[in-house]
Computed example of a mutant assay.
Amino acid sequence: MIRFTGGAPRAGRSRTSSRGPSAPWRPDHCPLLRRALACGLPPTVLGALGTGLALHVGRSLLREVRRSRTITRTAQRMRPPPRVDGLAVAAVQLSADRGARIGGDLYEVVATEYGVRAVIGDVRGHGLGAAPTVSAVLAGFREAVHEEPDLAGVLRRLERAMDRHLRERARAERLSAGTGHAFRTAEEFVTVLLLEILPGGETRALNCGHPWPHLLSGPRAEPLARTDPLPPLGPFPLPAELPVIACAPLLPGDTLVLHTDGAEDARDAAGRFFPLPEVLASAAREAPPTPQAVLRTVLTALVHHTGGPPKDDVALLILRNERPSPRAPSGPGGTARSGTTDLSPANPLQHPA
């Protein structure tokens, strides 16, 4: 708390010589103007210098305000609705930059005529510095997700959006800091996971260097797929063929947990990684594991493990199928198998490659 005390100033301390916030500003406080005064420049030149300084400061402040507004709008749009076409949704993002509302992680869930489509990604770096790349990828996803009939087309659009963003960033760096700094854009990349959930629960995915989601079905928590991912977007072009992966189905009552590597790579004081699969298995045993309950379980365990806020950006996106169970054929004993997973070898979707 700040306290103010009345009375006259202390002896021996001149208010006009103070450089504190309450002291009046004088020309000799600015090194550039002080040198100009020493050279005996005419008042018109001094006025031009002052105007130039004011314009420079004003433009810098305006750029910062615009940047903050863009980041705020992106953060607000990253809040998914609690339900998307029969899927209950919960999500959270923790930024490594203290006080920031957005970092280097991204996610989005959209209902389209092709099914529910979701994206989760992780930009190289963290905090506010990664926010422009996050905005570029999300803008490309929101445009392509309604126009492309298959996931491969969506991913191609994201690749073009990322390439365009890197070219614009390299050009801006050359203009502002010279060609020596433009090569930083060659190190930029983003991992991306695209997911498509059809009305019957069939799940398809394309993965560019991102951790696979976990499927919570009954008391189990298992990776949605185990195939090797494609390279991240940015450093290398995508291959000519983009085979979409048919994953384990998201049946009524099942839950998908999408996450960035900031969750599984978080360490405790002894350097041990966060046991995300074990925590998710514990959450799966809750009845029922609602998205909010899973989110609360993971966040509580994560903060307890790290002993405080995470050192890297963390994003969690949780989807639970709450659609009505379709009428299923009866089993050998006449018992209907509705909302359960067939573990027989005849079900290829239950055995991801």
Rank of each mutant, 00 (worst) to 15 (best):
V279F: 02
S176H: 07
P249M: 08
L319Y: 03
S60E: 15
A186V: 13
P310M: 08
A172C: 02
R98I: 14
E147R: 10
V294K: 07
L233V: 03
G50P: 00
C247V: 06
R66W: 11
A293V: 07
L316Q: 08
A172T: 09
P348G: 11
G127P: 00
P235L: 15
E278V: 10
P82V: 10
L193F: 13
R77C: 05
E278H: 15
A75F: 00
G262W: 00
L49H: 01
R167G: 06
L302C: 06
R15H: 10
P348W: 15
G308Y: 03
L155F: 01
C30I: 09
T203W: 01
T74K: 00
F189Q: 05
A353I: 03
A287H: 08
A131I: 04
L276R: 00
L62T: 11
G209T: 06
R157D: 04
H126F: 05
D228I: 05
T300Y: 09
T227Y: 08
E147A: 13
H126K: 11
T297N: 02
S330M: 10
L94S: 05
D254M: 01
L106R: 07
V314P: 01
A172S: 10
G153P: 06
P352D: 09
L195Q: 00
P235M: 14
L175D: 15
D254G: 00
S60I: 04
A177G: 11
R226K: 08
P289R: 08
K311L: 14
P211T: 06
L151V: 02
L155V: 10
P231L: 13
E143W: 08
M162T: 13
G307C: 02
T44R: 14
F4H: 12
G12H: 03
A182F: 08
A293T: 14
D265I: 01
D261Y: 00
S95F: 09
A269M: 02
P326V: 06
T290L: 11
R327D: 12
A346F: 03
L317G: 01
V123W: 05
P27W: 09
M162A: 06
